[in-house]
Amino acid sequence: MLDYYWTMARTAIITQFQYRTANYFYMIGMIAEPVIYLVVWSTIATAQGGEVGGFTPGAFAAYYIVWTLVRNMNIVFTPYGWEWRIKRGELSAALLRPIHPLHQDLAYFGGWKLVVIVLWLPIAAILALIFQPTLNPTPLEIGVFAIAIWGAYLIRSMFLWLLGMITFWTTRVSALYELYFAVELLLSGRLVPMSLLPPWARDLALFMPFQWTFGFPIEALVGTLSTTELLTGLAIQVLWILIGLGLVQLVWRAGVRRYGAVGG
């Protein structure tokens, strides 16, 4: 299995390096969103005497620069791609292989992430020069962050697979996807750091996987979590991965049965 993961990841790396310019423009295009958040929050912090909820402009800069990498780690096979995958016959081809198609997506996008990390480093350096982040991570924080970004990737892969598999029953699910992405935007730490959310929203987020794909990895590096919180966070990530995996297996079996009944 390791051989398969490495070979597929290598294939993704070779492919994505061929598209390095496109990848760069894609990543640069993505920077607009965090830069807007950063400028807005820094302005508010300055207006309020230097900080908002414990975040100084430097802390916001650190949060949103790390944000850019975590956002890229959150890019996985989109639910919209499932219809295309079925129409093009790619799902049939995948079903004929003696390996679960989930491995294919995890390995391919995993390889892509390695390219993204390499391409991200100079972007992060330029952003750091411009926005002067306050970032002094400990070795433990760096270690937890390095693991947590992959945990985030796995959790989001599972839940977007779940969403995508609805395509087995109906292709008219765009509204559902949009609702999911809206809730995720609000309750993940993408729009605003989790600690700045109202208490009811934080309580709600406790029962959802979103903050473990976005807010947690960022906070792990920017230094707002205790050692206990760091380690508990990793454990909760593992729990969400297992929940996601279980649900994927359950829905996959029913979905393939449905696919086998109606044809692809």
């Binding site: 051989d3 070979t7 294939t11 070779i14 016959g89 292989r97 390996i99």
Partner: peptide
């Protein structure tokens, strides 16, 4: 006849290598 399972952007040799890993 109408399906494409090869990696579009890569030489076929890379797709063959992938087949090796898939089928062990």
């Amino acid at each position: 006849g109408n399906r494409n399972q090869l990696q579009w952007d890569l030489p076929a040799l890379d797709s063959f290598e992938l087949q090796r890993a898939i089928y062990r």
